[in-house]
Structures are given as structure tokens and as C-alpha cells.
């Protein structure tokens, strides 16, 4: 499994995708922007490009010839996705902290980079993962439909959350008003987000294994 992960990181993922989080993360410095987009860029750019690469380089046959189990093949690929997602979120969080210091008195229309917001980002990525990973492994090479479906779902979640943040006073207060000051509340939203992220990704991984076992290479 470790060897497969190394194979993914060295061969499968272009170095560009390790740099991208630092570029997209910098968008956190735009004052009052729609920060969900910063994380969504991972879904827009990294995922389709990476999986197009796997397809053109015949990664599926290459990996299947190696002495590894199908389960480990899925595990390595899901791990790479998670590693990149975490990179995107963590880097964006760091830029977010800078952003808060740069514009301390900003009243933002959208969610600011609070801990609670990052919790929502984890949930958004969780939704993305469960759809993308499970759909992709129906064929293990067709990434188009899986990308469209999973991005749509993630965007609907982000859009819905922002809408609630504007329309609903409780949510608005929780993320933008006095609620932001309650570290415990914010932290608990973040932790809930992380738990959902872990849970959804693990479920996606198990569905993927089941589907991949039936895939003809």
C-alpha cells in the first residue's frame, strides 16, 4: 500500500497539483469573497486534470499488472485525493488567518474564514468525495460524469449554506454575528465537519472497492 501511494505521488500526480493549493489559497486574501470557491477549485481543476492524466497514461493497466490487490489500488487513490484535499483546506486556512488580520473590521456578505466555515468546507468536500469516488469506480476510467455530478452536489451545498447564512438569522448569527466569538461552538462545527468528511470518504472507499472488483480492465 505504501509503495502504491508513492507511485501515485511520484508518477500519478503532476507537481503542479502540489503547488496549486498555494495559488488558490491566496484567493482567501480577497476581502469578503465567496470563500467556498477557494476549495471548490480543487474539484474544478485538480480532479478532472488528474484523472484525465490517469486515463491517457493507461494508469489502470499499469497498476493492475503490479503485484497489488485491487483493494489497495483503490485505497492508494482515495488516499491521494484526501491528501490533496487536506492540503487545499489547510493552506486556505492559513491564508484565512492572514486575511482576518488584514481586514479586521470587514462586514462580509458571505461567510468569513471562521472555524465554523472550515467545518462547512469539510462537509462540502465530503459530499464531493462520496459522489465522485463511488461513481468513478464504476468504470475506473470515466471521470466526466462523476466530476459533473459531484461538483454540482458540492456547489448546491455551498450555495444552500450561503443562502441560509443570508436568509436565516440563526445561521447568520452562528457564522457571522456574535456567534463567531464562541470558540467552542465554532470548534464543534469544525469537528462535526471533519467527522462527516471522514465518514463519507470511508463509505465512498468501500463502495468503490465493491465496484472496482467488477471492473474489466
Amino acid at each position: 500500500m505504501y509503495n502504491l501511494l508513492m507511485k501515485e505521488l511520484k508518477l500519478g500526480v503532476s507537481p503542479f497539483f502540489y503547488i496549486l493549493p498555494f495559488l488558490t489559497g491566496a484567493l482567501m486574501l480577497i476581502p469578503g469573497w465567496l470563500y467556498f470557491l477557494v476549495i471548490l477549485y480543487f474539484c474544478f481543476i485538480t480532479i478532472p486534470n488528474m484523472f484525465a492524466g490517469y486515463k491517457t497514461q493507461n494508469d489502470l493497466i499499469f497498476t493492475s499488472i503490479l503485484p497489488v490487490t485491487k483493494k489497495d489500488i483503490v485505497k492508494a487513490k482515495v488516499s491521494v485525493i484526501v491528501i490533496l484535499e487536506l492540503m487545499h483546506i489547510v493552506v486556505a486556512m492559513i491564508y484565512g488567518m492572514i486575511s482576518i488580520r488584514l481586514y479586521p473590521n470587514l462586514t462580509s456578505y458571505f461567510f468569513g474564514p471562521s472555524l465554523g466555515f472550515w467545518g462547512l468546507c469539510f462537509i462540502m468536500i465530503a459530499i464531493f468525495n462520496i459522489i465522485f469516488i463511488s461513481m468513478y469506480y464504476k468504470t475506473a476510467f470515466k471521470y466526466g460524469a462523476a466530476t459533473i455530478a459531484s461538483i454540482t452536489a458540492a456547489m448546491l451545498f455551498a450555495g444552500g449554506a450561503e443562502w441560509l447564512g443570508i436568509e436565516n438569522s440563526f445561521v447568520s448569527d452562528l457564522f457571522k454575528g456574535t456567534g463567531t466569538a464562541h470558540l467552542a461552538t465554532q470548534l464543534s462545527i469544525l469537528i462535526t465537519g471533519i467527522v462527516i468528511f471522514a465518514l463519507f470518504t470511508i463509505i465512498a472507499y468501500h463502495i468503490a472497492i465493491k465496484r472496482f472488483e467488477k471492473v474489466e480492465i
Binding site: 509503495n3 508513492m6 507511485k7 511520484k10 508518477l11 497514461q57 493507461n58 494508469d59 493497466i61 499499469f62 503490479l66 503485484p67 497489488v68
Partner: peptide
């Protein structure tokens, strides 16, 4: 496989270093 190429833009050295670990 005579007609299928893998990671054709990578150097032999890079590919071998990945493959040999298995």
C-alpha cells in the same frame, strides 16, 4: 503489452524507481 504505453513522458529512471519497490 506491445501497443500500450504507460507514463510515456516519464524517464526510465523515474519509472524504474517506482516499479522496483513492488
Amino acid at each position: 503489452f506491445g501497443d500500450i504505453n504507460f507514463y510515456s513522458r516519464s524517464k526510465i529512471k523515474t519509472l524504474t524507481n517506482v516499479i522496483k519497490r513492488f
